[in-house]
Amino acid sequence: MMRAGLLSHTISLQRATEEVSAAGTVLTTWADFATVRAEMVTHSVADAGMAFGEAAKASLVLRIRHYHGLTSDDRLIFRGQAYGITNLLELGRRVMELHCEVLK
């Protein structure tokens, strides 16, 4: 059971749409399809070794009320930053846990 008082953050869920420009190129744009309240479970920033130096890798785990049709192909906006959904877990019938990583 999820308590409403824990849903202290607002996130926007986005889905990719493809459009063909007048020049014939395919453009991928992201459009909001829902705005929901979320509980932050964890938020971490880790330094990940990359081939060309160090890079910060931010990840977070959020819980939301179940949203039918949400997939890992979608993304979310949290505090102005885009996050890709890496894993979706259903916790019972009413709660979803979203594991996300920052998109650059």
Rank of each mutant, 00 (worst) to 15 (best):
T29C: 00
M50N: 06
H66T: 14
R79W: 01
S44L: 09
E54R: 11
A55H: 09
M50W: 03
I85D: 06
A58R: 10
R94F: 11
S72A: 14
I64W: 03
L6S: 11
K57Q: 15
E19L: 11
M96K: 04
M2S: 13
A34V: 09
D74Q: 05
T10K: 07
A56K: 14
A82V: 08
G24E: 01
T71N: 07
E97R: 14
L98S: 02
D32Y: 00
T86M: 04
G53A: 03
F52S: 02
R75Y: 11
G80F: 06
K104F: 01
L98H: 02
K104S: 08
A34P: 07
R63V: 06
V36P: 06
E39N: 11
T10W: 00
L13F: 08
L91N: 07
D47S: 14
T28L: 01
R79V: 04
M1N: 09
T42N: 12
S8I: 07
V102H: 07
V36S: 05
G80E: 07
L13Q: 03
G49R: 08
E90W: 08
T17K: 11
A46M: 09
T86P: 01
A38L: 06
M2P: 05
H66A: 15
E18C: 00
L91G: 01
H99G: 02
L6C: 04
L88E: 04
E101K: 04
S44Q: 14
L62G: 09
A48K: 12
E18H: 05
R3M: 12
T71P: 08
D74S: 05
G24A: 04
L103P: 00
R63N: 15
E18L: 06
L62F: 08
R3E: 15
F52T: 01
E101N: 09
L103F: 04
L13C: 14
L7Y: 11
I11Q: 04
F33G: 03
C100N: 09
M40K: 10
A58F: 02
Q81A: 13
L98R: 03
R93G: 06
A38M: 06
T28A: 02
V95Q: 12
M50A: 09
T28Y: 00
V95P: 01
D32N: 12
I77A: 13
A51M: 07
F78M: 08
C100T: 12
Q14W: 05
V20C: 00
G80K: 09
A48E: 11
H68R: 14
F33S: 05
V102D: 00
I11L: 09
R93Y: 04
T86E: 10
